[in-house]
Nucleic acid binder design. Structure first.
Lengths: 232, 232
DNA sequence: CGTGCAGTTGACGACACTCAACCCTGGTGG
DNA sequence: CCACCAGGGTTGAGTGTCGTCAACTGCACG
C-alpha cells in the first residue's frame, strides 16, 4: 500500500484526525503491514512487549486466560484502535492480554522505539490515547456494574454496546462475527447458558443469527430488557 | 499549607516525581485544598465534570450505582492518585463514577481550565496519567478474569491486591478501613455471603478484623487459596 | 434512649454451571 | 466418493453456589 493511501485511511480515525501529514510521518516510522488469519494471535498475554499495533481491517478480541483455563474477553478492537500501546511505557513489560483475530485482519506493527521517540513525546497523541483508554475503561466499569444482573440483560447490554461503537453500520447487524462461545467469554457465562438465553430471544423475534452474524431485529425490545425484566 | 511543603509531598508521588518545581507550578495553578468527611461524596456520578482532584490523605472509593440500586466499587484511590482527570478531555463530560471518602480525607481541587492549559499540553504528565490509568485497567481486567471463581478466591484476590498497592505498610494490615459491605461491593457479591466467607477465614486463623481494619495473618495461605481450593 | 450502621446467622430458593448427549456443517484425507 | 473430524450450536437433567429474606446483636452518636 502506498503511504499516501495509508495516511488517508488514518485520517479517518479519531486518533489521527487532527494530525498533519508532517506530524504523522514520525509516528509511522518503520511501520510494516501484517496480515493475521482468523483465530491467530497477534500478541500473546505474558510475552515480552516489543511492538504495538494499529488495527486497519477486521477485528481482534483481547482475551485474558482465566485461572480455570477458559478465556475472558476484555475488549473488541476494531479498525482505528491501537493494541498494546500502553505497555510500551514499561520497560520489560509484558502484554496483559492476548489479541486474537476474529476473521482475517490486517494491522500495522510499530516498534517500542517509535513509541518512545514519537508517540510519547507528543502531548496530542498521548491525550488521544488517554481518550481511547478512557472509553475502554468505562466499558469495563459498566460491565462490572452489570455483573449481578441476570444473564439475559448482560447479553443485551453487550450487544447494544457493540452496536453503539459502530455508528456506520446499517443499524441492526453486528459488525463482527460472534460465536456463542465468544459472547459467553465476554459476559462471563457458560456457552450453554448463553445459547439458552439467545434462543429465547430468537423465538421472541428480537434477534436473528446467520452464520455467526447477529442481526438485531428489535433494538427497542432489547433496550427494554435492560430497564424492566423478562421477555414476557 | 505552604507551597514549599506541598511540593515536597507531591514529589513523593510517582506522578510528579520527575518534575522540577518550575514545571510543577503551572500544574497547580489555582489549586485549593478541600477536606472531605467520611462517607461524603467528592464528585457524584453523572454530574457535570468541572474539576478534578489529587488525593493527599485518606482514601476514596470510586463507585458506580448499579441498575438495582446497589453500588459497585471500581477502584480505591489512595494518596497520590488523581480523580476525575480523564473526563476533563471531554467538553461537557460527566463523572462516570462517584468518589466517596473512606474516613476523613483531604484533596486539592483543580479546574478543568488548568487541565486544558497545563496538564494536557505536557507529554510527560499525559504519559504518567496513562500509566496510572493502565494500572487501574489491569486491575479491572484481573477482576473480570476472576469473576467466575468462587467467592472465597475473589475476596482473597482483592485483599492481596490492596496489600500490593501499599508496599510501605507493615506487610499485613490493610491501609484502608473496609466494611464487609464495601468488600461485597468490590467483588460483586452480597454482604451476607462475604461475611460467611470471611468468618471462615477468621476461624481458620488467616485473618483478623478489628474495627474495620483487616489484618492478614497468613499471607501465604491466602495466596494458596488462589492456586488450589478450599480452606481444608 | 431511639436511630442507624456494622456484623452475624439460618432457612429457602433460583439462576446458572456442569456433564453428557446429539445434530449439522464444512473441510481434509484416504 | 465417502469417512472422519473439528467447530459451532442445541437440549436436557442434576447440582451447587450464592442471593434473598428475616431476625437479632452490639455499638456509637446525638
Amino acid at each position: 500500500m502506498e503511504t499516501a493511501q495509508l495516511i488517508k485511511i488514518l485520517h479517518g480515525y479519531p486518533l489521527f484526525r487532527d494530525l498533519s501529514e508532517k506530524e504523522l510521518a514520525p509516528l509511522l516510522e518503520g511501520h510494516r503491514f501484517k496480515n493475521v488469519r482468523h483465530r491467530d494471535k497477534l500478541f500473546t498475554a505474558g510475552e515480552a512487549a516489543e511492538n504495538f499495533a494499529l488495527v486497519l481491517t477486521g477485528a481482534f478480541k483481547l482475551v485474558r486466560p482465566t485461572p480455570r483455563g477458559e478465556d475472558a474477553i476484555m475488549y473488541f478492537s476494531l479498525p482505528g484502535d491501537v493494541i498494546g500501546a500502553l505497555v510500551m511505557l514499561k520497560p520489560n513489560g509484558t502484554y496483559p492480554v492476548s489479541s486474537v483475530a476474529m476473521g482475517p485482519s490486517t494491522v500495522i506493527l510499530l516498534s517500542r522505539a517509535v513509541y518512545k521517540n514519537a508517540w510519547m513525546s507528543s502531548a496530542t497523541v498521548q491525550a488521544k490515547l488517554n481518550s481511547l483508554l478512557y472509553v475502554r475503561m468505562c466499558i469495563l466499569q459498566d460491565e462490572k456494574a452489570n455483573a449481578k444482573l441476570p444473564l439475559q440483560q448482560r447479553i443485551a447490554a453487550l450487544l447494544l454496546k457493540i452496536l453503539d461503537r459502530y455508528p456506520e453500520s446499517d443499524d441492526s447487524k453486528l459488525p463482527i462475527p460472534l460465536t456463542r462461545q465468544e459472547i459467553a467469554d465476554a459476559v462471563g457465562a457458560s456457552v450453554e447458558s448463553v445459547i439458552r438465553c439467545m434462543s429465547e430471544m430468537s423465538q421472541a423475534g428480537i434477534l436473528r443469527t446467520e452464520d455467526k452474524h447477529i442481526e438485531i431485529l428489535r433494538t427497542d425490545r432489547i433496550a427494554a430488557l435492560l430497564k424492566d425484566d423478562s421477555l414476557s
